[in-house]
Write a protein that binds this DNA or RNA. Structure first.
Length: 151
DNA sequence: GCCAACGTTGGC
DNA sequence: GCCAACGTTGGC
């Protein structure tokens, strides 16, 4: 089993939105970066995900979700009405993928990016690095445990 | 709103 | 295949 960090802007889709969905499940779509997509495709059912809020008052990890469906073609790439439409994608050769995630829990408070950066054990995490823009990144088991010890 | 970082595009 | 221009991300 693997661990991940998925970023979302809470204005667009927050952990509360996930919690309130029927079945508390939602496709994690709209990922339009090749590296992030490649990580997304590695995700397996039951992998655990840190839900990260970006571009907000306190950026940081707000809770946990889990992968309930492994990568399949993101249908927004075929939808001309969608902001995620991609003319270069075809049904037989889709460029973009998504996974379904399910709400597991919301933390009593946000583990802020500031706190993550303070922790020596988390120096190698992509999210603590300068200029980091990837919306999907792997998390090691050690990092996963260290982060939860910050709660 | 600014700006650094960096991915993508397109001309050559 | 190089690289400048451009667009986007995301913290501050």
């Amino acid at each position: 089993m693997a661990y991940w960090l998925y970023k979302s802007e809470p204005n667009t889709f927050s952990i509360d939105d996930l919690k309130e969905r029927p079945n508390k499940t939602e496709p994690w779509d709209g990922v339009r970066n090749f590296k992030a997509r490649n990580y997304l495709r590695q995700a397996q059912v039951n992998d655990l995900v840190f839900f990260y809020h970006s571009s907000c008052e306190v950026p940081g990890i707000v809770g946990i979700a889990k992968v309930v469906k492994a990568a399949y073609p993101d249908k927004t790439q075929f939808d001309k009405q969608s902001q995620y439409y991609d003319a270069k994608s075809t049904i037989t050769r889709p460029r973009w993928y998504c996974v379904d995630v399910k709400f597991v829990k919301k933390f009593p408070h946000t583990i802020s990016l500031h706190d993550l950066k303070q922790d020596k054990r988390l120096q190698d995490m992509q999210v603590t690095k300068r200029g980091n823009r990837l919306s999907i990144t792997p998390v090691s088991e050690k990092e996963w445990d260290a982060i939860q010890s910050l709660l």
